[in-house]
Design a protein around this nucleic acid. Structure first.
Lengths: 128, 128
DNA sequence: ATGATAACAGTAATCGTTACTAATTTCATT
DNA sequence: AATGAAATTAGTAACGATTACTGTTATCAT
């Protein structure tokens, strides 16, 4: 990979993402970062989100809603997606890495890991 | 919902899907069904795959590769996605529905279920 | 300061999917 | 069997998220 050069835009994107716990999409990142730098390009946001995810500084979440979400918290944890409002919420959950092992027992390839997320109705939507 | 009327195109799509264990995409369904009916429209394929999934006759799989896959096997089971070749393979795995309960314990909304799939290198790609 | 190259803004293109429309098919009722 | 209302179709246009391109600007080792 090419040598990484510093960029103000990348810093802004990373910093914005660290202030948020709601796993925003590229578009949300774009419109928020634009408040500070109205000239930033949507392509720049996408490119840097991809780059940051590739070097492991952020996490890309694919939650089946057709839009990528991004999370500055790279520690392993699980997510809940509200089927009503689409909200994405962190979940406290004891590690379930054991399921990778138990999936491996009957499988001849190599299982490197798993993707799991939960869905249902969030607290907010239940009170309606 | 409107009354369902029979359609030859829908039958062909369902029948094709039942012959396949490799979880084809809409496009693969389209090009195969077109061998029998060259006039069928891609929109018809999408509409019927969605309809069949809505009435529970098939399953729509979202596996994080940006393309929907479809499975005529509607029984609950898990999938493996090869990171090398993209192949999707059924997995034998004892039920892990318990994780839904254990996710529920610390969560105030209602968890209806979970999506889990595994990734790694398939047997084919390991022999290369 | 210079120069190589990474990153940028702006825009066009791509890809999977959905929406639209006029014509056709299904099917319950005659 | 003929009628007609409604579902379905083929074909095509539109859409939204993302990626690619291009000429310009910023970074940074020398």
């Amino acid at each position: 990979m090419a040598v990484l050069k510093h960029s103000k835009q990348r810093d802004m994107i990373k910093e914005f993402l660290m202030t948020r716990k709601d796993h925003p999409t590229a578009d949300v990142v774009y419109s928020n970062v634009r408040l500070q730098n109205p000239n930033i390009s949507l392509g720049t946001v996408y490119r840097n989100l991809t780059l940051l995810a590739d070097i492991g500084e952020i996490q890309r979440l694919r939650l089946g809603d057709g839009v990528d979400h991004f999370d500055a918290d790279t520690s392993p944890h699980y997510h809940f997606v509200c089927s009503e409002c689409g909200r994405v919420i962190d979940l406290e959950l004891d590690s379930i890495t054991g399921i990778t092992d138990s999936a491996q027992t009957h499988f001849k390839g190599h299982i490197a890991g798993h993707i799991t997320y939960f869905y249902g109705t969030c607290e907010n939507c239940m009170n309606e």
